[in-house]
Amino acid sequence: MPSTIRVRAVAHGESTEVQSLIQHPMDSGFVKDKEGKLIPPHYIEVVSFECNGKTVFTAFWGPAVSKDPYLKFSFKGGRKGDELKISWTDNEGKSDSIAAKIL
């Protein structure tokens, strides 16, 4: 199974820019399916980013975050070749994680 997480982390001098895309329906709970039944809410609640064992960013999301959510931020302290670990958990208790090298 391919990972649900895509990440691009690039070091520019002191700062590392991180962009990620996660494959997730992010169902709001307000949309109906073809039979007219409400699709229950299903969304990522927490995404955390760790570099060298330290949390560098935490996202708390609700159902208003778009399908296949995107995120961009930057942090200081990462170097080329360092490992960035990303993990998410959703409201149904599902989760995924990935480790990526900073470019």
């Binding site: 391919p2 895509r6 691009r8 962009q19 990620s20 895309l21 494959q23 399908k67 296949d68 995107y70 961009k72």
Partner: peptide, 14 residues
């Protein structure tokens, strides 16, 4: 902005 990480990336890999 969307193309910074386009949503078709998953389909492309598939």
């Amino acid at each position: 902005e969307i193309m910074q990480f386009p949503p078709y990336d998953f389909a492309l890999d598939d």
